[in-house]
């Protein structure tokens, strides 16, 4: 009995751990699609062409940028360009750490998905705050 008990509870723990994997994998896949299809354009325009001054002067002025971001389409944009890619990155980093035998997976998992969720809420919260201003 005593020998069996730990192994039974361990088995249950593994079952519980595997139960939430489809959620993380779904977010990872959706984020992967966003990373591949939208991020090249997002990075090219916002992080390369804008700072190099290659966009028309008013294209992303303060007024234009606020108007575009603090709206319902802006909220959807943040979901696709920040939240889902964050969960994609969290999944890859978690498994990368496992591949390199760094830390332990139970903790890595909580830290990675926790940070992705926290930053996602922050980003969506900022859009809502901007809409209410």
């Amino acid at each position: 009995m005593n020998v069996n008990k730990p192994s039974v509870s361990q088995h249950d723990a593994h079952r519980r751990q595997a139960y939430d994997e489809p959620l993380w994998w779904g977010l990872f896949s959706a984020g992967g699609v966003c990373f591949a299809v939208i991020m090249p354009a997002v990075i090219l325009f916002i992080a390369v062409l804008l700072p190099l001054g290659l966009l028309p002067a008013e294209a992303l002025s303060y007024e234009r940028a606020s108007g575009l971001l603090f709206s319902i389409p802006g909220l959807l944009f943040i979901g696709a360009a920040v939240c889902l890619p964050l969960f994609h990155a969290a999944h890859r980093l978690r498994h990368g750490l496992f591949d390199l035998s760094l830390g332990n997976d139970t903790l890595n998992k909580k830290v990675m998905y926790g940070l992705a969720a926290l930053l996602s809420l922050l980003a969506l919260g900022m859009v809502v705050a901007g809409m209410l201003n």
Binding site: A65, S66, L69, F70, A81, R92, G96
Partner: peptide, 21 residues
Amino acid sequence: EATVLPLVFFILCLLAGMISL
């Protein structure tokens, strides 16, 4: 797997941009 490292950097830049906006 490492392609997400510069991606995370860009996303953090984007979050900073939202704060500045």
